[in-house]
Amino acid sequence: MGMATTKSEFHVLAVDDSIIDRKLIERLLKTASYQVTTVDSGSKALEFLGFCEDVESNSNEPSTSPNNQQEVEVNLIITDYCMPEMTGYDLLKKIKESSSFRDIPVVIMSSENVPSRISRCLEEGAEEFFLKPVRLADVNKLKPHMMKTKNRDCQKAEEEVSSNEKIASLEIKSSEQTQAEDGNNNKRKATEAEEELSQDRTRRRYNGLTVI
């Protein structure tokens, strides 16, 4: 039981054009008990996130535009730097310039130790820069970055939840971690209800919530 809960706690989106490196990063992340989705390009990563270019390019569009909500909860993106067409840096920029997605931590991986590249990525908002080949010790550094956003999201959600919302029946709903999006409202209530009881439980229960 406990194991299963921990396993689905964080969802990482891994982006790499090399099939070998995708296989490796997937295994590393799974060994560290994260849920993993791998894609082979930056554009597929954006597609997976539900990123809509037209909406993003229009700066007047509010961040809550229904066309550009995060469809699947992703707690962290880890991307290769050197990829054809869209580089990891390009992907990082798109994420950080997006009002809907900028809170997702991004980590860049590269086989080349180029200091100017590293500082450029960090300045643009990357949380970490890993030299390839990535090792288990690197992957273990990811958790604090995900906890940060999780906590921030929790606070956000608490503000959103109105005081008169019912919090009944959340025990059943919120325990189903992999539940589809229609369960999210209940999870949000669960978060509020449980927050006094256990910080750790709150975080876990919050898992699966769509960040808007």
Binding site: S18, I20, D21, L24, S111, K132, P133
Partner: peptide, 15 residues
């Protein structure tokens, strides 16, 4: 260069 770069990366990934 692009191909050698890829080969360098994958060979380093498997050791």
């Amino acid at each position: 260069d692009a191909h050698v770069h890829q080969l360098k990366g994958s060979s380093s990934s498997i050791g």
